[in-house]
Structure formats: C-alpha cells, structure tokens
C-alpha cells in the first residue's frame, strides 16, 4: 500500500494507526530489553505493556506521551518517574470506538491537559476552561463539519474520521499574549487540540479539520525518518506564520495547505452548501493554494528532503497541479 499518497485513503489511515501502535509496542519492547539489567521487575512490567499492544490494544493519545516520558525517565535513571509513566500506560482504558471530546477545565481531563502543557515545552502555562455546555455545542458543530465534508469529499472525511480519535477543547489563558486555532503534537497520536472560540462556522471547522488532521497524517507517515534533513536551527519564512520557522515546520504548513485546498475545493463544488458558503469555500481554497505555493517555493529553494519527504511532497505537488488543471481525482 502506498502510505505517502496525497489522495485520501481510509485503508491507509487504518494502516497508519495500526503501525503507530505496533511501533509503540516495539519501542516498549526495546526499552524492556535494555532496562532488564538495571531493574528486572520494571523491565517485566514494561514488557507486559508491550505485549498488550502487540495483542491489539488500542490506546488513547496520552499513552503515547507517557511512552516518551517513560523513555526519558529510564534514560535519566529516574525510577519513580519511570514507574509513574508506566502506570499511566498500564491504567489507560482501551481507546473508545467513538471519537472523544475532552475539555480544559474538566476534572477527568486534567491529566491530559497537564501532560500536554508539560510536553509542549513552550510558554503556555495553562488553558482557560471550556464549559461542558460549550463542549456539547462544539460536538454538534464537529458532527456537522464531518457531515459537510462527507457530502463534499467522502473519502477525505472518512480518512480524517479514522485518524482523529480525540479532540481537546482549550482556549488560551491570556489570548493577548498567545493564541491559537488548533494544535497537534507528534507525541499525542490521534489527538487534536482546538480552540472553540476560533470556529465560527461549520465551514471553518471543516477547513480546520483538514488542516489539523493532515498534520497527524504526516506524523503517521513520519516513522522511519524525518521529512526534512535541514537542522532545526535553520529558520525560514513560513507561509502561515509571521515568525521564522524551521524547514520541518514549513514542510508541514505547505503540505496541510494542499490538503486544505483539496477540502475547500470539494466544498466549493458541493450542492449541499448554500451559494454563499460555496463562494466562501472557493475563497478559502484560493488562499490555501497561495499558501501552498509560497511554502513550496521556500522548500524548493532551501529544503533538504528525505526520501519520505520527497515522496510526500511530490504527491502533493502533483495533486495541486492536477487540481489547477481541473483533472484531480475527487476526494
């Protein structure tokens, strides 16, 4: 199966999800092997979790984060931290079949929020709460956005739905200092964070889903090697941000802009939308295309792509050319 193709593919999404879990199992297995000489009992417990995953266990996003925390703790020789991280892996429930909505401020989501804040390594110290009522309203909006995408781009909608296993609703504590539409994090496979204040419409949320979950698609493709070989210290102008970004960030921004172009182009042609919404989708698609072209220009000038990165981006470029010519396959 072609795992790096640009065309949406539900089977590919399932394969990527399975592969991430298989990689997690293999990684825990390796950690268990290497830990055996340092702490045999701990090693056996790590191996037990590896076995559960190998047997088909599916885990929520914060289990992946706990694996990274466990790895660091073991390397640091911090037994207490390692045991705590392993405990979270062991105690996590089976990932629900239905997508889960989490929210900052919910007591049951406090652990997830704290872990995400800790792992993001940036200046965000806290989130402002999202109420249960707001979360319920957002859940309805999310279902509507997926219904819209399903009408316009059914395979894309299915692919996004398979990859998106959880949404954390959160808003910045001080939006005057730092703000966001959404976020995704390699260490939280399956989870996207969304700011409900920046989703004024179903159409906007549909575009954001295409955006954020496409980051996750790239995460799923990026298991064996990075997308780019440029050092992180090299910074370049990004089409989507004012601050300079490393090439990996520009690659991601460029690729998701192409996927957003795909989604909005399909919505612009969908009879289920009002004429006004189709016009809005068309304008959004045009903006997304301009962003893709701007980012791609930076990559062409300065990008050092891995084999995976080249495959992924060439597929996006090909689709964008075909779309411009009116010959792209439907999504």
């Amino acid at each position: 199966m072609n795992l790096t193709g640009f065309q949406p593919n539900a089977a590919r999404a399932r394969v990527l999800d399975a592969r991430m879990h298989a990689e997690l199992a293999a990684s825990l297995g390796h950690l268990a092997e290497v830990t055996a000489s340092a702490d045999a009992a701990l090693a056996l417990d790590i191996e037990a979790e590896a076995s559960r995953l190998s047997a088909g266990r599916r885990v929520p996003a914060d289990v992946f984060a706990a694996y990274f925390i466990l790895t660091e703790a073991l390397i640091d020789g911090d037994e207490a931290a390692a045991r705590a991280a392993l405990g979270r892996i062991a105690a996590a429930p089976e990932r629900p079949a239905e997508r889960t909505i989490h929210r900052a401020g919910a007591p049951e989501d406090d652990g997830l929020v704290r872990t995400l804040l800790a792992r993001q390594g940036g200046p965000i110290k806290s989130f402002a709460a999202v109420t249960a009522e707001e979360a319920a309203a957002f859940d309805t909006l999310l279902k509507d956005a997926f219904a819209l995408l399903s009408a316009a781009a059914p395979v894309l909608a299915e692919e996004l739905s398979i990859l998106l296993r959880g949404v954390l609703l959160a808003r910045p504590s001080d939006p005057a200092v730092f703000n966001f539409d959404g976020a995704s994090h390699y260490q939280f496979w399956g989870l996207v964070m969304l700011n409900p204040d920046h989703m004024p419409s179903t159409l906007k949320l549909a575009e954001t889903l295409a955006h954020e979950v496409s980051h996750m698609l790239l995460f799923g493709m990026t298991v064996d090697e990075p997308l780019v070989l440029n050092p992180d210290e090299e910074l370049f102008a990004s089409p989507l941000r004012e601050d300079l970004r490393p090439m990996d960030g520009i690659f991601h921004a460029t690729y998701v802009s192409a996927r957003m172009t795909m989604a909005m182009t399909a919505l612009a042609a969908c009879d289920a939308l009002t004429e006004a919404d189709r016009d809005a989708a068309r304008r959004m698609a045009e903006t997304d295309r301009r962003n893709f072209e701007a980012g791609d220009a930076v990559i062409r000038d300065h990008g050092r792509l891995s084999a995976t990165g080249a495959e992924v981006l060439d597929a996006a470029r090909d689709w964008m050319e075909r779309a411009a010519a009116g010959t792209a396959l439907p999504a």
């Binding site: 940036g122 966001f180 976020a183 954001t208 990996d248 960030g249």
Partner: peptide, 24 residues
C-alpha cells in the same frame, strides 16, 4: 514534528512545539 495549526494572516500558534522555537 510538534505542529501547531496555523492560519493565514491571523492567529497562530506558538510553541506546542519545538523547544527554543519562537512563539506566536
């Protein structure tokens, strides 16, 4: 590969991402 959703022109993210990366 810590990525933030970004949006043209307007609000963007910051560093749910790379240590040492610049914030929005």
């Amino acid at each position: 590969s810590d990525k933030i959703g970004t949006k043209t022109g307007a609000v963007k993210t910051g560093p749910m991402t790379m240590i040492g990366d610049k914030t929005g």
